[in-house]
Design a protein around this nucleic acid. Sequence first.
DNA 1: AGATGGTAGATGGTCAACCATCGACCATTT
DNA 2: AAATGGTCGATGGTTGACCATCTACCATCT
Lengths: 216, 216
Amino acid sequence: MESASSLPRISADSRRALVVQALRRAIETGEFQPGDRLVERDLSAQMNISRGPLREAMIQLEQEGLITTYPYRGTVVAEISAEEVEKVLVPIRLTLERFAVGHALQRLTDADLAELQGQIGAMRQAAAAGDVTGVVETDMRFHEILLERAEQPQCLQIWRTIAPRVRAYFHRDAYRHGELANVAHGHDALLEALRRRDPAEVDAILQAHINETLDL
Amino acid sequence: MESASSLPRISADSRRALVVQALRRAIETGEFQPGDRLVERDLSAQMNISRGPLREAMIQLEQEGLITTYPYRGTVVAEISAEEVEKVLVPIRLTLERFAVGHALQRLTDADLAELQGQIGAMRQAAAAGDVTGVVETDMRFHEILLERAEQPQCLQIWRTIAPRVRAYFHRDAYRHGELANVAHGHDALLEALRRRDPAEVDAILQAHINETLDL
DNA sequence: AGATGGTAGATGGTCAACCATCGACCATTT
DNA sequence: AAATGGTCGATGGTTGACCATCTACCATCT
């Protein structure tokens, strides 16, 4: 057999993980709006899964700040105010990413850099197609790769609880169609700096890059 | 009936919430150490609760960074490195609390200030008794009251996912018996500043107060 | 000796039935 | 009219049985 690349990769995710991903995405993309009620029995029936793993998924999403559950009363999609994004989420993200990139910098392999380059390519394609979701996901995935390479477990864990909110914000407010193309451009500069491996330069570009989020 | 104060308040917490609290506390206080395995069936039997709510509790604790679950393989108590505390948790905590206190400052009632004073009193008693757990809890509860009064839901939610790690760190590394008494003292200064309601003063004292965490 | 395949035990994942809480609404009492 | 008590529907919480995955270990084949 020459290559198995035409065969599908079989997901190892649990059913619960698949529910998390689907619900998270629906919230990030705005299909579910702040204030919308999420009723376990309804979602369970709709998604063909029993209530147990669905509940588990919802507990995770609550810890990600995407939903708020009131015991015995119901669950609603959470509001994420622009002020909290600007004053809380973005600064926290800066703290996390600056720390992680400092750690990842000397550990990045050629394969890592190639993967980052691949995300930029995918970002460009998504932008050209006007695919906001694609841009958001590749944008954040670029950063997540750096967080993973840092091998600082708490830092990555916190980043992952913050990231869904950041993605929701990007979907809602941060990108306009005419500016999608600029997103990949910003990542070019960051990748070039990563290649040069000068910590101060990388840090400065990273800060500018993330703070740009607020100017979009 | 003159007063119902001699009757116990009946907890409205679900069984799952009680499990969260018990496990969280065991981890924070060091009864469960990083690397220890937590086996659902064992804990379930030990705590007289079925596996469902125990699993749910563990999902929450994982999102709080206290444990790490490997699908089908088991769960271990997570490591929280001193570096991540210093470079990640403390700066994040600063971001959160500075934002929240800015919002809470003009909303604090006399009852709030009295409650804060009460926490300081309890902190003192705990310190005098050499009760590290008591000091940690009253210390953090003091701050949580301010976060709650800020009425910024995402800010509070993130703080609550960080706080267990901070408490674990305090238990493990931050307090020494001879220094317990100083903890209440630091809160006195902060409360006085809160009473004067000068934002810049409060902010400066809050920063110094939290950064002191690193000098203990 | 190395590669491959199978099994069993340990542990987690899922299901459907049943239990528990909450608040809106209605009825009764004061 | 206001206060109190009861009911019911909506929704979440819990249980125990069964299912699924993973890996260590052993057996067999090359």
